[in-house]
Amino acid sequence: MKAIWNNTVVAESNDTVVVENNHYFPADAIKREYFEDSIAHTSCPWKGRASYYSLRVNGELNKDAAWFYPEPKAAAEQIRGRVAFWKGVQIQP
């Protein structure tokens, strides 16, 4: 699977985990040069507290376009160390 934004592959892996129709990529599959830490956080009752990354590709910013759970709850342990995308990031085989 590939995560693509602004005509650029920002993550690629054959080992994604799908939860709630979102592909979670292994952290080592993301191309770090496009990722910036964000101060944003949200909370999910069964997954826990999410942290975010913004994407910067070809001079354009996609704020909080990727998220991950640093310490997922037990029910979501399968997404520990994984990153998912939204905000226009296309997921393609």
Rank of each mutant, 00 (worst) to 15 (best):
R56N: 14
W86Y: 15
T42K: 04
K63C: 01
A3Q: 02
C44H: 00
A75K: 15
N62P: 01
F25T: 02
A75R: 15
E77K: 10
P26I: 04
A76K: 05
V17M: 09
W67L: 01
V9C: 08
G81C: 06
A11Q: 09
Q78K: 12
S38R: 09
T8C: 05
D37P: 13
E33C: 14
P26G: 06
H41R: 11
T8I: 09
A27T: 09
S38E: 13
G81H: 04
S13F: 13
N14H: 15
Y34C: 12
V57G: 04
G59V: 08
Q92M: 15
V10H: 08
I4R: 03
L55T: 05
S38I: 00
P70Y: 03
Y69V: 00
K63D: 01
V19G: 03
I91F: 10
F85T: 08
A27L: 09
Y69R: 00
N58L: 14
P45F: 05
W5R: 03
L55K: 09
L61W: 06
T16D: 07
Y34D: 07
L55V: 08
T42Y: 00
N21C: 14
I4W: 01
V57A: 06
E71A: 04
T16C: 11
F85G: 12
D64G: 04
N22D: 05
E36H: 13
N21H: 08
L55R: 10
N58G: 15
R32N: 14
C44D: 11
Y24K: 01
F85M: 02
R32Y: 12
E33L: 11
V83D: 05
S51E: 15
A74E: 06
Y34S: 12
D28Q: 14
A3F: 01
G81F: 06
V9Y: 07
I39G: 13
G48C: 02
A40W: 03
I39W: 13
S13E: 13
H23C: 11
T16F: 06
G81R: 05
W5I: 14
S54M: 09
E60I: 06
Q92W: 08
S43T: 07
P93S: 15
A29K: 12
D37M: 10
A50S: 14
